[in-house]
Nucleic acid binder design. Structure first.
Lengths: 145, 145
DNA sequence: GTAATCTCTCTAGCGACTAGAGCTTCAAGA
DNA sequence: TCTTGAAGCTCTAGTCGCTAGAGAGATTAC
């Protein structure tokens, strides 16, 4: 019926320190404790952690996940917020894909220009990085590349 | 001929604290100083910082950029390393695009399933996150989404 | 000369963990 | 029942690439 943090970790694929971190961040409620002060979890916590895991896999921030959990805990509220959070996440993902594609094109061009056989003085990779004029596209920074 | 850190920031689009951070990280050499201990930069530093900026925009890590700078400073070395660093970066970008596309598909499906008009108990967004079985694809975590 | 703007160093914070120290508890076998 | 080894506990600090702020000193334009 009740299981340890290690069991919970195995069942969800979330690492033990990460579970404790989620608890500290308030995403998981403080669980019951054994006589010796060890955490003991039940089905509800398992499901919540799976929810968090799934949302993290989809790229939601812990802040966004907090919002989603808040809604889950109040089943009578409008789900407008949930939809908006998900839509924002989708928009962010699409934006990131767009930027990464520009990067990919540029990087492919740069690496194609150099076999790696020569000497660094003549290296097209280094030359391209030194001189933005050699670029075909603009590429804005992408965080977390 | 010589300019301040603020001028350098304006000419490269890199923020002042970031320039100091790069110096601390060893990506930029410690520059000359004015009588009053302020940093004074010349053309060489400007070019190096533009190189760094450009590489950062393409998603290279500071560690990778260190490696590239090392090669730039030794023009007689083989550029194999540079090519490999760039190729690794390209691979990483492509990998990230692949994962983001899977996420995009899943998020689009999830958000399409909910108009936001209902109540959170019946919300398809929340249901999908709670139950991975509703997913059509596997989606591994992507760092930095 | 004075005021406004820069610049200096230093420390701390972000997000989402991850690693390690030093200790205690638990579960299984002898 | 005892022992042993794995697993758990709390706490602090580190990762990456910055960013923000405090409180001081330097520079520049008028």
């Amino acid at each position: 019926m009740f299981f340890s943090i290690g069991d919970l970790a195995r069942r969800t694929g979330v690492k033990v320190p990460t579970i404790r971190y989620y608890e500290q961040r308030g995403l998981l409620d403080a669980p019951l404790r054994s006589a010796g002060n060890q955490r003991r979890y039940g089905q509800a916590e398992l499901e919540r952690l799976r929810f968090i895991r799934h949302a993290r896999d989809l790229g939601f921030s812990l802040g966004a996940i907090s919002g989603l959990i808040e809604l889950q805990d109040h089943p009578d509220r409008s789900c407008e917020t949930a939809t908006r959070i998900a839509q924002d996440q989708l928009d962010a993902v699409r934006q990131k894909i767009r930027r990464l594609r520009a990067l990919e094109a540029e990087l492919a061009r740069i690496t194609d220009g150099c076999t790696g056989a020569g000497v660094s003085r003549e290296c097209y990779v280094l030359a391209s990085l030194a001189d933005h004029e050699l670029c075909e596209h603009d590429h804005a920074p992408v965080d977390g590349v």
